[in-house]
Design a protein around this nucleic acid. Sequence first.
DNA 1: CCTTGCGCTTGACGCGACGTCAACCTCTAG
DNA 2: CTAGAGGTTGACGTCGCGTCAAGCGCAAGG
Lengths: 252, 252
Amino acid sequence: MTRSIQDVARLAGVSSRTLRHYDQIGLLPPSSTGAGGLRHYDDGAIRRLQRILLLREVGLPLTEIADVLDAQTDEAAALRGHLDVLRDERGRIDRQIASVERTLTALEKRRPIMAEEMLDGFDHTQYQEEVTARWGADAYAASDAWWRGLGAEGQAEWKARLDALNADWVDAAGRDVDPTSHEAQELAARHVQWLGSVPGTPRADDGGPLRDYVVGLAEMYVADPRFAANYGGGDGAAFVRDALLAFAEREL
Amino acid sequence: MTRSIQDVARLAGVSSRTLRHYDQIGLLPPSSTGAGGLRHYDDGAIRRLQRILLLREVGLPLTEIADVLDAQTDEAAALRGHLDVLRDERGRIDRQIASVERTLTALEKRRPIMAEEMLDGFDHTQYQEEVTARWGADAYAASDAWWRGLGAEGQAEWKARLDALNADWVDAAGRDVDPTSHEAQELAARHVQWLGSVPGTPRADDGGPLRDYVVGLAEMYVADPRFAANYGGGDGAAFVRDALLAFAEREL
DNA sequence: CCTTGCGCTTGACGCGACGTCAACCTCTAG
DNA sequence: CTAGAGGTTGACGTCGCGTCAAGCGCAAGG
């Protein structure tokens, strides 16, 4: 017994457009076609569709579904790989949520932020100057001009972002996370990303911060007590350093 | 002082293509253009770019960034709205992760699933038959044929999906979640979505399950002890029912 | 016999945020 | 004079379809 495209669509809870699309990309050709190009689907095709939808529901891209169903790939391996993708995604979203929440609180009670807005921000660029002295004297001037150019609102936003990053570092350090773990390495990636948003940062050809620069900063985070305090004392700073060093070695 | 497009790109850590794109969509026009159409950016433009990047980093779409920066929209309101989007997204990903994990365990120790594969699955279709008797006698036949047609592997996958849904219901019920809360309503949406994947389900014009059908099922989940056991006893089934009823009222 | 209408077909554009050629221009240094 | 660096404007590709638009085959009703 074969069914029309609409029958199948209703059965499976998808649109007929979707079925045509799956035909077009070769994922699910109809079992036969009749007068005027009408698509007919038999039980085998419907069985295949069910499996497609199960895999689609967990977010597997259609091309990978095709690989799995055509047995070119092990299903369990594909799912495990996909699981990593999903976890990364969740990590990204969690960080975005934290960042937005902090920005919101910063916007709501603007005062306390304004009070210390020069503090950490300038602390940071100040230390940066110490390090960037090796990379050119005008780096600080550019950085300083950039900071003043941001304006009050821009500075508040930028501060909120920095606060979020620092808070996450302190949190992870407090939980005795392994510096080489996925979580710590994601924090390091974020830190490096953040560095990339700071003008005056010495950069490699790909636009990312220079490896030696990151290494130098990491060591300084521990060596300088004013900085270490930022990360909750010596242990926290050491954690940040170890995570950054591991990241620099692997990625930069 | 104005800078070239590459200068700005390096400063901000984005590609020149991105800057051209932002010009094209009107998000960030250069402050001036010179010979041959060369783009020049002054401090004001760079300031605007910094704010764009801050908002972009938290995932705000470019169109909304434009709204915020051009002050057509309150920044805090935009961020709060975006926060909801992010939370939904995270919920979706959490469920996908749970689903994949369950499918993986189902794939690894296939035996126990096989042992009970007929149990819940047929229990469900059995109850369904009781309900669908009101909607046509051949509904069950179609459903039964569908189930057998899935094959052993397809049945295992389908079971894993159902298990994940049920486990989440029991979990939410155990935590005394409000049936009208966002979380419970998302579970209900998932339940209805799942119903939509079951052939033989009576459907509305839009292809989704018929409202009355959902309501009938919901009541039966409480009335029939065999079913209530599925959701961890009377309280669990009542929670499922309340959530489904609220959902049906609002969405169907 | 013609029209109407249903169910289906193919073909094409649109979305979001760019990456990636391709073909061409402009200026500078050797 | 020429090569090279650094720009420019298109235009296509990504992913998974939604959404027209135009047309075809077949049945019932005028």
